[in-house]
């Protein structure tokens, strides 16, 4: 899976502009699917399987988009001011590099800080593209960029920008590949605009009208020195989400996922994330309501340019999803 992961995490796809990622995914899934389509918001919707006894219409969602920045002003000297797309933190930016959709590269730098500034606010940062002046700047107001960083393979651990949520995109592709038989009508949704408020999955879920929704996304961990207190760690298996900042998983779905993992002897953890939410929130409130759950890939340093996941967690996520989707489902 590593070559696939590398291709995906190194692709450029900020929210709203997921085209390059979508093309990659399309190439991988077209032969495996019964139908592939792209909707009005750019979601890639991949259908596989027919409903038989005990079968449901199931929507799985992993988002293709990543956080980034957007240019707001080019000053007379050619420096670019920007605002953020999605939940970007100011602490990890200075010294980083960005790649614009048009191929231009730049570095993020900051104004001199006064004694009272603990950290650069976005207003005090700018991007230097090496331009001699405004006329020479290859970027205009409204252009988007992502944080440029190649993947680093540390053996069991992988580090990259946009593990959130390309790692789940890889998990869904691999699951689609592994899945031999299913009693369900499955919709693998590679969604858009999650980082700006689960917008793509909102409309995809409306169109699909599923009986069950499962988001696959990353979650934070509590296993770093003096870090956040959280009972999820890298390497202990994928996490079955109980709740996050925007959604309460359907308890029947949590039971089904946990019981299935135990029966299949796949390691898993139970997750409560106190801030942030996933596509599952949007799916749950669709139409007359949808039972939802979320399978999470534990990930350190989420929304930094160096997000770290455990490769075994990733493989176990594929195994668990494959078992979950191969058998009839009776939520109770």
């Amino acid at each position: 899976m590593k070559p696939l992961i590398k291709k995906l995490v190194e692709a450029v796809g900020p929210s709203g502009y997921e085209g390059a990622v979508r093309e990659l995914v399309k190439k991988e899934v077209t032969r495996l699917a019964d139908e592939v389509r792209v909707d009005a918001l750019g979601n890639l919707i991949v259908r596989k399987g027919k409903q038989s006894a005990g079968g449901l219409r199931i929507m799985l969602s992993a988002h293709m988009d990543e956080i980034g920045i957007i240019a707001t002003h080019i000053d007379e000297d050619g420096f670019v001011r920007f605002t953020t797309i999605g939940g970007v933190g100011p602490r990890t930016l200075i010294g980083g590099r960005v790649q614009f959709l048009n191929g231009a590269f730049g570095v993020i730098a900051g104004e001199r800080l006064t004694a009272t500034d603990p950290v650069h606010s976005f207003e005090k940062m700018f991007i230097d593209l090496g331009a001699a002046g405004k006329a020479d700047c290859p970027v205009k107001v409204g252009d988007l960029a992502i944080f440029d960083r190649p993947m680093m393979d540390l053996g069991n651990r992988l580090v990259a920008k946009s593990m959130d949520d390309r790692i789940s995109v890889a998990v869904l592709i691999e699951t689609l590949r592994k899945l031999k038989n299913t009693p369900h009508e499955l919709y693998f949704v590679f969604s858009t605009q999650e980082e700006v408020g689960t917008r793509g999955s909102t409309t995809a879920a409306y169109a699909i009208d599923p009986d069950l929704g499962i988001a696959v996304d990353v979650t934070a961990t509590g296993d770093t020195p003096k870090g956040m207190r959280m009972a999820v760690k890298l390497g202990a298996g994928p996490a079955v989400k109980v709740r996050d900042g925007g959604m309460l998983s359907d308890p029947r779905v949590v039971r089904w996922m946990a019981d299935t993992a135990e029966a299949a002897k796949i390691p898993y953890q139970l997750e409560i994330l106190e801030a942030g939410f996933t596509d599952a929130r949007a799916i749950q409130l669709t139409r007359a309501g949808v039972p939802v759950g979320c399978l999470s890939i534990p990930c350190r340093y989420v929304h930094s340019p160096s997000e770290m996941v455990d490769y075994n967690d990733v493989r176990h996520a594929v195994s668990l999803l494959t078992v979950l989707l191969s058998n009839p489902i009776h939520l109770q």
Binding site: G246, M247, L248, Q284, L285, R287, A288, G289
Partner: peptide, 12 residues
């Protein structure tokens, strides 16, 4: 939490 029932039951 989400007004979940309020958004969904009237739809049905």
């Amino acid at each position: 939490e989400t007004l979940g029932g309020a958004y969904t039951s009237p739809f049905a």
